[in-house]
Nucleic acid binder design. Structure first.
Length: 418
RNA sequence: GGGGAGUUGGCAGAGCGGUCAAAUGCGGCGGACUGUAAAUCCGUUGGGGCAACCCACCUAGGUUCGAAUCCUAGACUCCCCA
């Protein structure tokens, strides 16, 4: 990457590692210098919250706004009804419109923390939903106006669907239309809002390029695409998964403490890279912290966790998570911020088995797993090894909150609610 | 419309009448080592139940002393021909 950008936005993207590819560096850079550039990223509503894997996208929009341009967050209210087949081995289950709407409501929450939708400035962030224009499309009109610009020959050649075809796995016509709809989104956003740029993960390259081509053909407008690298951790795992599944950005789906812990446990080799991508610390500082060696880099991981948690959940949540982590790991104690299971007297009844408590507190997914944990001496009750699988916890035992632990790192509190 | 192949644990993939809760790999979990890291090594790994015990190899029946394995019907997936 020898290109030296003139615009702040491009400079940030390049030096912080956001950039995988761009359709035209020079022309986009010029446009960014010339004025406020509206740019969008689409988010499909496949779950009630986005997870850490989307954070890079969100950070790109945040930098965009910080450097004076206009971010557009596009909810895929329409496209989610179809399902993006890109690089997927099988078809996604179809979501009902109600589920999609509920998901969108959940996803929207997180954006307000990263982007400013309320300012009077010309670069006010926009929240849109492509259902607005996709829902009312007329099939025949759409085919005639838009469909005629697409070559099936070309669509079949895209890498994103090739693997599916090569493996002779069926690609339904419904899914096949996804890329056309996404291309149409870009066209509509350009028409309605003057949107000049679509960003996304590198798996979206084909879809983005289609939108650019379509817009050129229909409106004769020159617009751009920019992709971010597909992130994996240094040890080759997909970004955003932890032991029990996705690391969600919404606090009600993943506690802020667990969110903090996820970043605190970053692999050494990823610290510098993640600081640049997910925090706003100066690049030099990121590089310095990422270069620390041995146990010193642990301090950098705390900074990483604090910075990211502050952005996503606020400074208080970050401080509380850090305090709890210190109490738990450095003093072997308890912290208020540990995941907590509140039991009512009714829940408790005459007593509840310890196995049930471990499951309900979220430490294991099944009772068998909990029993295995106990059998392997991995379970602890108030830091004492738990050996008796048949233990029943009653109200007396819960006079004080108890701490359950699975292994050395995962803890939960159980207390009796009034 | 006709013919064929298949459906096994989170995934991939063996098993083809008893010794099968089911090989192996991945993933997960626990432990050791460390720095709440990585790599490595060791152990473990279907579900429900405090327990006895129960449910489990697409579904529903059937044959057998006995079925993931055989038969019948159904659902779904894939392939080939038209």
């Amino acid at each position: 990457m020898t290109y030296h950008p003139k615009s702040d936005f491009m400079r940030v993207m390049i030096e912080r590692g956001f950039l995988a590819d761009c359709t035209d560096y020079q022309a986009l850079d010029d446009a960014l210098i010339a004025g406020v550039v509206p740019a969008y990223i689409g988010f499909d509503a496949t779950a009630k919250s986005l997870h850490v894997g989307s954070l890079i996208q969100i950070m790109m929009l945040r930098w965009l706004q910080k450097t004076g341009h206009q971010p557009i967050t596009l909810m895929g209210g329409g496209t989610t009804k179809v399902g993006d087949p890109s690089f997927r081995a099988d078809e996604r289950p179809l979501l009902t419109p109600d589920a999609i709407d509920a998901n969108i409501a959940g996803i929207k929450q997180v954006f307000a923390k990263y982007l400013d939708y309320d300012t009077d400035a010309p670069n006010r962030a926009l929240m849109l939903n492509n259902a607005e224009w996709l829902d009312e499309l007329n099939y025949l009109d759409f085919l005639r106006d838009i469909g005629r610009h697409f070559s099936v020959n070309r669509m079949l050649s895209f890498e994103s669907v090739k693997s599916r075809l090569d493996r002779e796995q069926s690609l339904s016509f419904l899914e096949f239309n996804y890329m056309i709809l996404q291309a149409y989104d870009f066209l509509e956003l350009n028409r309605r809002y003057g949107c000049l740029l679509q960003m996304g993960g590198s798996d979206q390259w084909g879809n983005i390029v289609n939108g650019i081509d379509l817009t050129r053909r229909v409106l004769d407008h020159e617009i751009f695409g920019l992709t971010s690298p597909l992130l994996t951790t240094s040890d080759g795992k997909k970004m955003g998964k932890s032991q029990d599944g996705a690391v969600w950005l919404n606090a009600e789906m993943r506690s802020t403490y667990e969110f903090w812990q996820f970043w605190r446990n970053t692999t050494d080799a990823d610290v510098g890279r993640f600081l640049k991508l997910y925090t706003e610390l100066p690049v030099d500082e990121c590089n310095r912290l990422g270069a620390l060696e041995g146990s010193e880099i642990n301090a950098a991981k705390v900074i990483l966790a604090n910075e990211i948690t502050t952005l996503c959940h606020g400074a208080e949540a970050a401080a509380a998570a850090e305090a709890t982590a210190r109490a738990v790991f450095e003093k072997g104690g308890v912290g208020d911020d540990l995941p907590t299971l509140d039991l009512s007297a009714a829940d408790l009844g005459d007593g509840i088995s310890i196995v049930q408590l471990i499951v309900r507190s979220g430490l294991t997914k099944s009772g068998k797993e909990a029993k295995r944990l106990i059998a392997e001496n991995g379970a602890r009750l108030n830091d004492a090894p738990l050996t008796e699988a048949g233990l029943i916890i009653d109200a007396a035992a819960l006079a004080e909150p108890i701490k359950l632990s699975a292994g050395k790192k995962r803890h939960a509190l159980v207390r009796l609610a009034d």
